[in-house]
Design a protein around this nucleic acid. Sequence first.
DNA 1: ATGTCGCCTCATAGGCGA
Length: 254
Amino acid sequence: MKVASWNVNSVRARLEHVAAWLETCKPDVLLLQELKGTEFPSETFKELGYQSVAVTQKSYNGVAILSRHPIETVSTALAGDLADSHARYLESIILGIRVVNIYLPNGNPVGSEKFSYKLAWMDRLNAKMSAWLEDEVPVLIGGDFNVIPEDIDCHKPASWIRDALFQPESRARYRAMLSLGYTDAFRSLHPEADGQFTFWDYFRQAFEHNRGIRIDHFLLSPQLAKRLAGCEIDKGPRGQERPSDHTPIIVELN
DNA sequence: ATGTCGCCTCATAGGCGA
């Protein structure tokens, strides 16, 4: 089973990219983030063999799950804050796996309300992740975590030291997820790999110089980690015309 | 501080978020 995740930075602007990529990569499931609008092109994906569920809002955020297999929607919002109206969370069951798509808040600038919101959002997710381990359904959480886990996950730590994605508070909460027993699929298979990124700024030819960060992740519950067969980043889409600033990451499960 | 995108509007330029 192949599951992919891709922050597309507007599904409308990237529809042709996504459609073409689906036809070449053929994942069973694709998690999309940053749809950036209320319109969702479910018909286009249906014609490609994918059913879809989308959580959208105007202008910002938005997450969707595309799947060749039936999707049972469990929840469209992260528990723990009824006032939170951002479209950042979609929880489903696909082929007996709890598949959770997240677009974790960016949190910049550090010290702002946005940063507090990010940390609180991570605490809320952590509570869910802990609870899920109590039942027998294996869990896969994928998406844009907006966290650079370790120094090895960016081209130059000094460039990110003041960024919300690199703050000790953000990284501690990511590590707390691992401490619960979840596995970072990519890092567990490639413990020493550096220069492996999923995002590059649009500025200053960051992609051409591979000045990027690894912030799109798959976390697997213990029983699902035993089924981990592969995890790779596909840099191809980031090098195309008018790309998203992120590129897809793909995990393969037995 | 800046760079570049994409979305939206008290819209064709500027603000916001990333």
